[in-house]
Nucleic acid binder design. Structure first.
Length: 232
DNA sequence: AACCAGGACGTGA
DNA sequence: TCACGTCATGGT
């Protein structure tokens, strides 16, 4: 089986255009950013609070619809402004209240505080993938999103959408794990961080529109390459 | 009214 | 190692 990742990227980019990830609600409405924080073509501001916002948002979005995670991010924004130490020292019950719409709110509140403690101690240093993975609540996808979108480090985000899409396209075996797909893609493609960032956003977009759990193949630009062709 | 959503972790085999 | 249960809100 062949893994034409670059061809897939080209097709999705042509279909959907730049997505402007990671959405930064703290900058929503400012120059280059739309009302939901998306910023196609704009540079990611890389100050500590913006990086911490991305890390928190990535954690809040775990196995949760973005619309729900977004509410929690907005609530945190209105209060803590994503100062890591302030969040680390905040009352747990207070954080729980703010992040409730994101689901798993007790877990996420506790883990956000741990994330705050970590980032407060990090200062200006760039964390390693291993360091991020050692934080309770930060798994491979969250770590890669932080490295990619907050620090501009090239990482392929091999999330559930990517694994489902690639498997349906016949590019990888069914049931492939996160690390294996990440490695396969990164060994096959010489992408920089902006391209990996775009590819992940494009895959999410495509998976939401068409390659859902129950596929909606009408209008899918990948139909002619896909085993699901004609199935639905 | 089940099912799904931009996962991670603890447990037991 | 890996399969499975748990965590929880909100839209379709």
């Amino acid at each position: 089986m062949t893994l034409d990742f670059e061809g897939l990227y080209g097709t999705l980019f042509e279909a959907y255009g730049p997505r402007g990830w990671w959405p930064l609600l703290s900058l929503a409405g400012t120059a280059g950013y739309d009302a939901d924080g998306y910023h196609p073509g704009a540079d990611v501001a890389s100050d500590p609070s913006t990086r911490f916002e991305i890390a928190c948002a990535a954690l809040l979005a775990q196995n949760t619809a973005w619309t729900n995670a977004e509410r929690a991010v907005r609530a945190l924004l209105e209060r803590g402004q994503f100062d890591a130490r302030r969040l680390a020292d905040a009352e747990t019950s207070e954080i729980e209240k703010l992040v409730r719409p994101a689901g798993f709110f007790r877990q996420k509140a506790a883990r956000l505080k741990l994330l705050g403690r970590f980032f407060a101690g990090l200062a200006d240093r760039t964390p390693s993938r291993e360091e991020l993975l050692s934080i309770r609540g930060v798994g491979p996808e969250t770590a890669d999103c932080i490295l990619l979108y907050a620090y501009g480090i090239p990482e392929f985000v091999a999330d559930a959408y990517a694994r489902r899409l690639f498997a349906r396209l016949g590019m990888v075996e069914e049931g492939i794990g996160y690390e294996k797909l990440r490695t396969m893609v990164m060994e096959s493609a010489a992408f920089d961080a902006p391209d990996y960032g775009e590819s992940h956003a494009l895959i999410v977009e495509h998976a939401k529109r068409h390659c859902r759990a129950e596929p909606r193949c009408d209008g899918c630009v990948l139909r002619n390459r896909c085993a699901y062709r004609g199935a639905r």
